[in-house]
Simulated scan of single mutants.
Amino acid sequence: MTALSVIIPASNEAGYIGRCLQALHRQDLDPRRVGGAEILIAANACRDATVAEAEAERAGLEAAGWRLIVMDLPEPGKLNALNHAEGRASGRVLVYLDADVICEPPLMRLLVEALDIGAARYASGQLKVAPPRSRVTRHFARVWTRLPFMTTNVQGAGLFAVNRAGRSRWGGFPDIIADDGYVRLMFAPEERIKVDAAYHWPLVEGFSQLVKVRRRQDAGVRQLEARYPAIMANESKPPMTPGDHLRLFLQTPLSYTVYVLVMLAVKSGRSGTRDWTRGR
């Protein structure tokens, strides 16, 4: 068994996955010193150069001591990709990483240090929103990153990790929308760790795409509440109080207005989408 398995489901991630892997190459974790580290890419139904971009990073990663496994799966779907990759993962620590996320150099080392223990634990890093290109997304992100949930919790959007004791709490990934929320809620708040290193996660660009993705996220939460009510006892998301709204408005009135307009549009309709196509 190796120390670390990084599992990356990838669906049409050309232009992103190369930078994601280059950031892993720059990690200050030495795979040989910790007992081995591997990256498993589960490319699923890709119609672009995702697989070729991943293979282009093989020589550099292997020279740095990483083992790279690239699976070119014909079946679409993130959950299917996760289950395939897990079937080949050998790590004591399992990191689930989106293909468009950039990890800062200390992150993998700190995740291994936090999770390579006997007790079941969940961990993530400090989520930083990658610099948005659109003004709407820039204003939305300015408020979203200051919400109580973002400042007080271990989030896991784009990157979460568990150890083998934690992974034993569920079987294969079920057919759900919110895989990250499902895993996070398998752990009590005191079992979740936020390590002191950042990763950069992109928000979708523009008003309509923000509404689409936020509706899907809300649908994912409702699905978890309906199908897995027992795990909702582990939710630690603090409510937004009137004081929180006033504070955010006073800090950044224009950004707060954009955020409220997006959320009002989200609440005005519901999305039944279940696919994993990114809203780029």
Rank of each mutant, 00 (worst) to 15 (best):
P76H: 07
Y182V: 01
L110R: 15
A56D: 07
E57H: 11
G36D: 04
L4A: 06
T273W: 06
P242K: 10
Y199D: 04
V266K: 14
G60N: 13
M186W: 01
G172I: 05
A85E: 08
L68I: 02
R142T: 14
A59L: 10
R109M: 01
V6D: 09
A37C: 01
C103V: 14
L250E: 13
A3S: 13
W276L: 09
I8S: 07
L210S: 09
D100M: 07
V213P: 02
H245Y: 14
T2G: 02
V162S: 03
M71E: 15
A188Q: 10
L246H: 14
L115F: 03
L127I: 08
G181I: 04
S268K: 09
V34A: 08
A198P: 14
Y199T: 14
H84V: 13
V211G: 11
E190F: 02
R33C: 04
A45D: 10
T145G: 06
R142W: 12
A120I: 00
V162I: 15
V260R: 15
V183H: 11
W66T: 10
P202R: 12
I41P: 01
A59P: 11
V51W: 08
L97E: 02
G15Q: 05
A265L: 13
G87Q: 12
G60K: 13
P238K: 10
S255H: 04
M1R: 11
K194Y: 01
R270Y: 05
E13S: 14
R58E: 08
V211Y: 04
E53G: 05
K78V: 09
P242F: 04
D116I: 00
L159G: 08
G158D: 05
F187W: 02
V34L: 05
T241V: 07
L250A: 13
V204M: 10
R135Q: 07
P229H: 02
D48V: 09
S255R: 04
A56K: 14
F187R: 06
R47M: 04
A10S: 15
R270S: 08
M150F: 05
T137Y: 03
G272N: 07
V136I: 14
M1Q: 06
A219R: 13
G35N: 12
A99D: 05
A219I: 01
V204H: 12
V183P: 06
V51D: 02
K267T: 09
A198G: 13
N83D: 15
A42V: 00
G18E: 00
L254I: 12
R58P: 08
V70T: 11
I176L: 05
A157T: 13
H245V: 09
G206F: 12
D275T: 15
G125Y: 03
V112W: 04
R146L: 11
G220A: 00
P131E: 10
N163H: 08
A3F: 02
H84Y: 09
L4H: 06
V70G: 01
S134M: 03
P74K: 08
A37I: 00
L250W: 06
V6Q: 06
R67Q: 15
A59V: 11
G118V: 05
G36Y: 03
R146V: 10
T151S: 13
V129N: 05
K267A: 12
L68P: 04
G77T: 05
V93I: 01
H139F: 11
E86L: 14
